[in-house]
């Protein structure tokens, strides 16, 4: 008889099984990444694919976040008579926090789910096995290229998103305070340190890797036919977002220690 305790222990079992599988997947990624053959052309294709897929939404969101955040922050600063600090605040907020996080979450939704769905459908329609029997290593051709593509492309997108965000912010400042845009950027960048930039880059690389590896892992291990494809895409987004939030906290904390020393 299946008691509740039995079902519970099976769940825990399955959970650790999944964690172990994920660990093996990441290990395989690092092991095979630096071994021939390298599919450079596929890697470049994937980078473009990711860029094209995510760019419109990132432009829109980055811009709007820039404007809205500036609008919302202004009254609070005005209360302290500190509205001249607005550009610096926006610089810090967008470059250190909003740019990476917004890009990460959007790419988890657009790119991660895309990779999950694509590899998932390749898995359940036997395309991955077809690659294997034609003596091509599907892990190298599909997974390694995609994970490197997200790891390399998402930092660029983060940079772009921050740029668009600052643009939106500066437009708002210019429209409301009619101050010069040049002064805005001077102020915005004045408080950004080298370590801040490094922090932002580290974050974006980690998010990129997370999105690629989670999407690939979920897709590559999809089962149960077409239903499995939807599930893989969905889980790719949920897991990637969850991990990104955790990574955000951890990285911010680590960089606080770094600055402290």
């Amino acid at each position: 008889m299946k008691t509740r305790k039995y079902i519970f222990s099976r769940r825990i079992d399955a959970y650790f099984q999944a964690v172990y599988e994920a660990y093996k997947f990441v290990l395989q990624f690092w092991k095979e990444s630096f071994r021939r053959p390298f599919h450079i052309r596929e890697l470049v294709n994937q980078c473009f694919e990711i860029g094209v897929r995510a760019l419109p939404l990132i432009t829109l969101t980055g811009f709007i976040v820039g404007i809205v955040f500036t609008k919302q922050s202004r009254p609070s600063l005005e209360n302290f008579g500190a509205q001249s600090w607005l550009p610096s605040l926006m610089g810090i907020a967008i470059i250190k926090a909003l740019g990476p996080l917004v890009t990460g979450l959007i790419c988890a939704g657009k790119v991660g789910s895309g990779i999950g769905a694509e590899l998932g459908s390749m898995k359940v329609t036997e395309q991955i096995e077809a690659m294997e029997v034609s003596a091509v290593n599907p892990f190298k051709f599909l997974v390694i290229t995609r994970v490197w593509a997200t790891t390399l492309t998402i930092p660029v997108l983060v940079f772009y998103c921050s740029f668009v965000g600052l643009l939106g912010s500066s437009l708002n400042v210019w429209a409301v305070d009619s101050s010069s845009t040049l002064t805005f950027y001077q102020n915005a960048f004045s408080t950004i340190t080298f370590v801040d930039l490094i922090e932002s880059i580290v974050k974006s690389i980690v998010y990129g890797f997370t999105i690629g590896i989670v999407g690939s892992f979920k897709g590559y291990n999809a089962t149960q036919g077409t239903r499995g494809v939807g599930k893989a895409a969905n889980q790719a987004v949920v897991s990637a977002m969850f991990l990104i939030f955790i990574e955000e906290i951890v990285i911010v904390q680590i960089f606080r220690w770094i600055r402290f020393f």
Binding site: M122, E126, Q127, A130, E132, V133, S134, V136
Partner: peptide
Amino acid sequence: RLRIGFSFQSSALYDGMNVYQNLAFP
């Protein structure tokens, strides 16, 4: 495996590639 041809139950064509690319892939 290069000496064995395997025709899948579901055809298993790579649906991200056109027919030419499918044939050229191996």
